[in-house]
Design a protein around this nucleic acid. Sequence first.
DNA 1: GCCGTTTTCGGCCCGACTGTTTTCAGTCG
Length: 573
Amino acid sequence: MKNKEIAEIFRQVAQLLEIKGDNPYRIRAYEKAAQTIEALGVDVEELAKKGRLTSVPGIGADLANKIQEILRTGTLSLLEDLKKEIPPALLTFLQIPSLGPRKVKAIYDKFGITTLEELEKLCLEHKVARLSGFGFKTEENILKGIKLLKEKRGRRPLGEVLPYAEEIVELIKSKAPLENIASAGSIRRRKETVKDIDVLITSNQPEKVMSFVANLPQVEEVIAFGETKTSVRLKIGIQMDVRVVPQNSWGAALAYFTGSKAHNIRVRELALEKGLKINEYGVYRGEEWIAGRTEEEVYGALGLPWIPPELREDQGEIEAALEGRLPRLVEYHEVIGDAHVHSKYSDGASSLEEIMNYAEKLGLSWVAICDHSQGLKVAGGVPVEDLFKKKRHIEELNQKSKKVKLIFGAEVDINSDGTLDYPDEVLKEIDFVIAAIHTGFQQDEKQITERIISALKHPLVHAIAHPTGRLINEREPYAVELKEVFEAAKNYGKALEVNAYYKRLDLPYIYVRTARDMGIKLIIGTDAHIVDQMTYLSLGTAVARRGWCEKEDLLNTLSYEEFMAWLKKVRNA
DNA sequence: GCCGTTTTCGGCCCGACTGTTTTCAGTCG
């Protein structure tokens, strides 16, 4: 039973309890537990075996028992009982914007329906509007919501939304009367997927700013319009929430709208303990405003150092801040190498020259050219004879270039039986070997784990590319026991990739943190197949930062000479 | 349901906007 499945059970319990109208704090406890477990980075099962479940914040004696029950029986009797009381199909209704637990319950109590089609029909017949607390507007909103839900727009990959958000922020900045503007929310925390775009603004002409926003050409529909808060749905099918606050509240509002919600709740609880109150306008002692101009001021008022947005998930960062042991996160500009770029030698679209020029433009010092290996025919795997042509080509270019060095690498397939896709006498000529699984995804956990471990064990391999194989929103990770992979990587002194391609971000950040805690080196590669994609490097750095990585944890912060030395050291170990 | 250097009971983050009401509940972030 994986963490994700246990989290899902608790999440369903929370939602059913919500519809039932149960104690809101009990509901929050289940939600919080679901969130914590999902982001744990170690198997709950491991903790359970050691009897350490209650050491997880938010897991008390009762939830620990419930986890044990789930691990033992595969299900939770509480959930089964709730399902008998409230049809789980109703949970779909909760996904309709404007419908919350109270309204869902009212509809169910009156009509006993459980499908979107039935609900749609009732709205069209204007039967819903007759319920107390409902009206024709609500009916309209439900119909609109059902339509949106059927379009199935969920969370989008960060790499897809971020450039769009930056563009829209620039546009508002250049045309509306304002002092400060920034995107906040999950975009600022660089979470791997985002649900909406949050924009924070300071201005003394909020009404002008808001009407500018509401009339942007990108806007499809205005959902809510106020002087301090306006929400619109953009034509690309994503919601944008814009908040305008006074200049003095910039820091407080930025902290508040950056979240995460769990982080904010902890910070506010901390404030209460100190007799302070925090809202988006500032920090208050009684009626008196005492801080809020900058984030540093807000955290400072609580006796905390500033916490980088990427860490604000209530996953131990507040405790670390209190104890003065926040990591000194790797800075974006400290990442000076891209460890995984494809060229025309395999399925990439760019030549070595183009890659070198683009790297210089990005301010990089080195790029490892890791084309696919011979067996991966669909991706133009490089036959052995071309490999040495490529090697000479790289050497020529390196002689001419002072600023950027290319590294002769290969992304070598791990065959189904765990062997590698080039013979050893070829591998030893390749300066950087990153091994990867591209076939046999359907193998079971034992087989895949053993495949990866045998690659890690191979003396000529330096690292494993995209260790879980997941594609965000598209493909689940293959069955792999990461704990064993991590142990092997540690034992053999090998690195694990943080693949920065926007659909991969693999290792996912929660495992980056586990690997980093174990002392395993991480290496960012963009997996670029065309030079533009090398800009994804910053997404990889974001993942590393979310995984608490410091400069020393990332091989990409090494100079070309240092990295080459590391490559040699691995093979001599 | 969790939690505790005031506490093992009694707290638990805070505010904006909408749509329904006629002073506020529900939803959302």
